[in-house]
Design a protein around this nucleic acid. Sequence first.
DNA 1: AATGCGGGGAC
DNA 2: GTCCCAGCATT
Length: 362
Amino acid sequence: MNWQSDGNVIETNFAPTLERWYERHKRDLPWRHTRDPYSIWLSEIILQQTRVAQGKPYYERFLAAYPTITDMARADERELLRLWQGLGYYSRARNLHQTARYITDELVGKFPDTFQNLLKMKGIGVYTAAAIASFAFGERVPVVDGNVYRVLARVFGVSEDITTTAAKKTFSWLAMRLIQRADDPATYNQAIMEFGAIQCTPVAPDCLLCPLQQECVAFQTGRQHLLPVKAKKAPVRERYFHYLIFQHGSKLAMRERTDRDIWQNLHEFYLVETDEPKKQLRELPLPDSIQEFVQRHGQATPPTEAVQLLSHQRIRAVFFRIELPDDANGRLPMGLAWYTMAEVEQLPKPLLVTNYLEKTFG
DNA sequence: AATGCGGGGAC
DNA sequence: GTCCCAGCATT
């Protein structure tokens, strides 16, 4: 954490610099002309995971429809949801209504006025509690939102993965230190978010005209496009499994998975995996031994399909049941072995296989 | 610690 | 198509 040892200058200048920048560059937004906690609360809920441009008209309409928290508390839930229509994350609207009623009825209309008490309200988390506490009541508590992660990661060169809990602690700690130097907590909080929104943008930040250019670790090391570090959600891999279930009398052919892959040491049927979905048995690339085995004995029943979701994979499975006549030679291809139903039951198996067995043999 | 929850805009 | 946006609740 090199900003602790040699970052004292920037740590001291950071907040005042942003506050000065803000006074010159701030946009004129409706919720910046009020200290009414209800209005500020409304704006913050609307702006959760929502761009200013998208939320602004909703803010105007909500305030026109419900000028006070009492009006909102008395509102019809369906009407409120209809006003919310198109904004997404509809639980925000339900929590808004619920909290309006709670404050009006249980708190006798007295809006919670500290960070800690705001946090107790439904729909108000750490960010929103800090925003209302500082904007409406002047409390010296830092907002930490997506903008703040980005600005701090770049200016102070923090390369922790912002999706982790450890990183959130680091950023909150740093933000708490920085706001101590702010002239006005409300202005500072507005400033850092506005700065992230229009100067220190995710793509193509305007570093050439940046007031923090000299001190910014990211700019000085040419890493502004690499920060903040955010782990990509692993894409869900699509896989196509085709199971051949050989049935001889009341026995099933199964084998153990040994590859370094999912379901290691679990038991399954004969598996053919392909890169593309195949619905027909004859489309499958089968080794000669299996091909011969199927043709010699095979009596295929209509295939059934199933989908199994794993954390990072989606398995689309097709099951082909192949019944062998009683007098068939039961010698199996390598790796497979016959198991009675009772034995099959005892084997450790993937859920995909268990579900199939349940559905097919009940 | 992961996941679900929306819709829109920028690229 | 991907990424991200003034996040929160639930498990």
